[in-house]
Design a protein around this nucleic acid. Structure first.
Length: 258
DNA sequence: GAACAGGCAACTC
DNA sequence: GAGTTGCCTGTT
């Protein structure tokens, strides 16, 4: 096992609503699974700069985590770009150390289909059940996210234990399209899927395609916009990094620290 | 028991 | 094209 330092805040990154498979243990260390690999991340910040240590096999860092945690992007520069007014400066301060994870496309698509009209604990529960039932076991009791091919071979009855309700049909359709080799390169591509509307497509574009200009608007974002911007608000004021602005706004609004 | 929840699609005017 | 409603399920 090796250790790698990351300039990020685990809490801000994992609790800002972008991912569902990172959970803190009793000592506050986050354990997560992505791309079929498992890792631990702990906060080691001492002063202003958010810092974390990632524990994983060295080969996994090269193969998966370096890109996943987006270490090559200069977040200082793009944070300054979106800090266009005092409110955004405060939001960016509060969310300091947020990184937009480069998640797997299929996992992001499936996860955000499940997210519609659902709260985070329930979304996590459905996803974990799905992984346990259909994912590959990668270590004791820990499962990878199931492949689109595996899900595409199931039917609605197979998905019934997830209790995902009417979303089950959307999950299957997305899995079949993905397994059949459909390429989702943009939000417009995603919008053609049944059960994928503006909000879900924006989330998948931002978190699964790393389109940093995607700007998902849910009820929290509607509140944030209403509270802090004019009626003629347009996310393009943050372009081409509206997605990072969205994460800061969302995380800050939900914190109630405003 | 009814309303609601971090949405979508199909339908109405 | 703006507004309304049904949809599964779990929680309040």
């Amino acid at each position: 096992m090796s250790e790698f330092e990351l300039k990020m805040s685990p809490r801000a990154t994992f609790e800002c609503g972008q991912c569902f498979r990172w959970n803190a243990d009793e000592s506050g260390v986050y354990i997560g699974i992505a791309y079929g690999k498992i890792a631990r991340v702990r906060d080691v910040s001492d002063g202003d700069e958010p810092r974390a240590v990632l524990e994983c096999p060295a080969e996994d860092y090269e193969a998966v985590w370096r890109d996943y945690f987006d270490v090559a992007t200069d977040y200082g520069a793009i944070t300054r770009h979106v800090s266009i007014n005092p409110h955004m400066e405060r939001a960016a301060q509060f969310g300091a150390g947020i990184r937009i994870l480069r998640q797997e496309r299929w996992e992001a698509l499936c996860s955000f289909i499940i997210s519609q009209c659902n709260n985070i604990p329930r979304i996590k529960k459905i996803i974990e059940t799905m992984c346990t039932l259909f994912g590959e076991e990668i270590s004791d009791g820990r499962f990878a996210f199931p492949s689109a091919e595996r899900i595409a071979g199931l039917n609605e009855g197979d998905l019934a234990p997830l209790r995902s309700g009417y979303r089950a049909r959307y999950i299957l359709k997305a899995a079949i399209a993905t397994a059949a080799g459909a390429t989702f390169e943009s939000k417009a591509d995603l919008l053609r899927l049944e059960g994928v509307g503006e909000k879900v497509a924006s989330c998948v574009a931002l978190f699964g395609l790393h389109d940093l200009d995607a700007f998902p608007v849910d009820t929290w974002m509607k509140k944030a916009i209403a509270n802090h911007f004019d009626k003629d608000f347009d996310a393009s004021i943050f372009s081409p990094y509206a997605g990072l602005a969205q994460q800061y706004m969302f995380y800050f609004e939900r914190s109630g620290k405003d």
